[in-house]
Design a protein around this nucleic acid. Structure first.
Length: 631
RNA sequence: GCCGCCAUAGCUCAGUCGGUAGAGCGGCUGAUUUGUAAUCAGCAGGUCGGGAGUUCGAUCCUCUCUGGCGGCUCCA
């Protein structure tokens, strides 16, 4: 019998050899022990026997498939732990995730002490190196084995008629599972429980308890993961926001951010950045009411689809809703007089506060709030203008996110279960968006059923410091609202036509964008955004006048500059400036006075640079004007 | 909204086995006038998140409300 290795070598082995042995005997590569094997591209246990000629490759933790196998094995270990701690717990399923794994149980609400019990059982198992043993059962034996667990019986019923029914045993714990698994529980010594929470069973709707965790093949790898997590927590935008006095919240206005003076500078700079682009791209800015009567939302469909998330206010016998998005206002502007095809594309931008009654449990710093301002615009276009406009938007997204050095990903979201209009129109709109994405050569993911109730969309996602994805920009191709608002324009053919509306934001909202960006830059803002761009430190009182003079001349150029008087040691003031993440720190003392120069310390560098005031000013202004990322 | 956890000075936290509280940083005042990540000293600052209950007595125990955190759900 012959096996082939990935490097092209071939080897004769006795029939029935275990995959692990076959790998150990000659295919070992760079010393990383495999945790499973790929046989003809299919992941199997190392203990799996090989019966005929195959292509054989090792799977390690470095491989995505190998990582998933380890996480899934860790989930089994958690199930073993909980079943031994809380015997009435019914395991349901325990898949690997992006971060690690979870296992859902049908059980009474868990307590922190339950997790301690789970940890203890897991530790004993890891020390005992309990093997994961695969066994094939008849369907009826399996039904008997899992008779007490309706969830497992349900999964059992899902096993295909030609598929073997297999279980994996770990010590005394048996779980219905296709596998494969790591050889034994010692592989899971780097297991870590992240917590537990209530989830809803997608099939039965019953409340389940989910235990989440992450696992590594060694304790050392777990340690470095935990260290990374600690570092990520330090760049949490909620922490930085309060340290740098950017924004705050009060109990009396949950989810409603206060922008403090320094944070407001960030908002205004973003606005300026976006506004410059809008001017250059043929947009007009408008401002429409914050409240509309119920009838407007009935027209838009929000009353039916979104009412429970809207703030309402009553005036006499009329109910008004605080607008959760800007579309109605723009629609009403378009409809306010007859429109010609010559006006299209009509691009109306609006940066107005929006109010959304988000459920209390979903609020999260700046990234999930109840009042927000989007860099919003509505493009009223003729059908044949859709592609060109969407392509321009993709270009702008690229430019904008590159400026912020943010990685982003696209997601195409299609028709949801509850939608307005006709399926055929949706199909066309979805096909158009997908075609543009495909032709742009960008990577994207498709999320079926995740579109808005009125339009399919391309969403832009960026990640926070803990890797949680957040939606920022969105491009929605809407054929519904224009019809519902009875929008029309007169075409070149003299006939009346309904425009298509592209709803789009690029950065999303200032709130969410800044929340994520603060974590991305860890509070070290690019000079153009930094609330304080330059801080001048006179060594002694006799240098104060020169320091103020420099500050005044920088301020006259529009630079945000402040002077830190010599009430504290120069070392202390340098430290404070560093802690405050000031991009440029200028020290002025006898030496500088004599030379007519400046000692410039650029954020992140311990070295001082000697520059003339003119050189320094030109440098700072240039970095700011070009919106360079680094000082 | 659901499950669990948390709430003590502006911030980060300690503490009281039930007898109303401390530190560091920050703030203020004074001294120091400093050469690139913390000069020294003094002072001020808290009805221990709100309400109710148990108790001779509650910051501590119980209930409840509010807010926050981690998940879930949701996200026009």
């Amino acid at each position: 019998m012959e096996i082939r290795f990935p490097d092209g070598r071939r080897r004769r082995v006795p029939a029935g050899i275990e995959a692990g042995e076959a790998l150990a005997d000659g295919a070992a590569k760079d010393g990383v022990p495999p945790l499973a094997a790929l046989v003809d591209g299919v992941a199997v246990d190392l203990a799996s026997p090989i019966g005929h000629d195959v292509a054989l490759a090792p799977l390690t933790f470095e491989d995505r498939a190998g990582r998933d196998i380890l996480q899934h094995s860790a989930a089994h270990l958690v199930a073993k732990g909980l079943v031994e701690t809380v015997p009435e717990a019914l395991p349901t399923h325990g898949p690997p995730t992006e971060e690690g794994f979870y296992y859902d149980f049908d059980v009474r609400p868990l307590l922190p002490a339950d997790l301690d019990g789970v940890r203890a059982v897991m530790q004993r198992s890891i020390e005992a190196r309990e093997p994961f043993v695969r066994k094939q059962l008849s369907r009826s034996d399996a039904e008997r084995l899992f008779a007490a667990n309706p969830h497992k019986l349900r999964y059992l019923a899902d096993v295909g008629p030609n598929e073997p029914v297999t279980v994996y045993t770990t010590g005394s714990f048996v779980d219905l599972c296709r596998g494969p698994h790591v050889p034994d529980t010692h592989w899971l010594e780097g297991i870590h429980l992240l917590g537990f929470s209530a989830v809803e069973d997608s099939v039965s709707g019953r409340p389940l308890q989910r235990i989440r965790g992450v696992a590594f093949p060694t304790r050392a790898e777990l340690e470095s993961y935990l260290k990374l997590r600690t570092e990520a927590a330090a760049r949490d935008h909620r922490v930085i926001g309060s340290k740098q006095e950017l924004f705050m919240f009060v109990d009396e206005a949950p989810g409603f951010p206060f922008w403090l003076p320094k944070g407001m500078i960030l908002v205004r700079e973003l606005e300026k950045y976006v506004a410059e682009h809008l001017r250059a791209s043929g947009y007009a800015e408008v401002r429409t009411p914050l409240l509309f009567a119920q009838s407007v939302y009935e027209t838009s469909g929000h009353w039916e689809h979104y009412r429970e998330n809207m703030f309402l206010t009553v005036d006499g016998n009329r109910t008004f809703g605080w607008k959760p998005m800007n579309c109605p206002g723009s629609m009403l502007i378009f409809r306010s007089r007859p429109r010609s095809y010559r006006e299209l594309p009509l691009r109306l931008a609006e940066f107005a506060p929006l109010h959304r009654l988000e459920a209390s449990g979903t609020l999260h710093g700046l990234t999930r709030v109840r009042e927000l301002v989007q860099d919003d615009a509505h493009l009223f276009v003729a059908p044949d203008q859709v592609e060109g406009e969407v392509r321009k938007l993709l270009d702008w997204i690229q430019e904008a996110f590159t400026t912020f050095r943010l990685g982003w990903s696209y997601e195409l979201s299609t028709r949801p279960a509850s939608f307005l209009g006709e399926a055929g129109v949706w199909d066309t709109a979805e096909a158009t968006l997908e075609k543009i994405l495909r032709e742009s050569g960008v990577k994207y993911r498709v999320s079926p059923g995740e579109g808005g109730f009125y339009a399919p969309k391309i969403d832009i996602h960026i990640r926070d410091s803990l890797g949680r994805p957040w939606q920022t920009g969105t491009i929605q191709l809407d054929y519904q609202l224009p019809a519902r608002f009875r929008l029309e324009y007169q075409g070149a053919d003299g006939q009346l036509h309904t425009p298509v509306v592209i709803h789009r934001t690029i950065l999303g909202s200032w709130e969410r964008f800044l929340g994520v960006f603060i974590e991305h830059c860890a509070g070290r803002f690019p000079p153009w955004l930094a609330p304080v761009q330059v801080r001048v430190l006179p060594i002694a009182d006799r240098h104060a006048a020169a320091a103020q003079g420099l500050a005044d001349s920088l301020a006259a150029e529009g630079v945000r500059v402040e002077v830190a008087a010599p009430e504290e040691s120069i070392a202390k003031r340098v430290r404070t400036a560093e802690v405050d993440r000031i991009p440029y720190v200028v020290v002025l003392g006898d030496q500088e006075a004599a030379e007519g120069g400046l000692a410039v310390r650029t954020r992140g560098s311990k070295e001082s640079l000697h520059q003339s005031p003119a050189e320094f000013t030109a440098h700072v202004l240039d970095r700011i004007r070009r919106r360079e990322y680094d000082p």
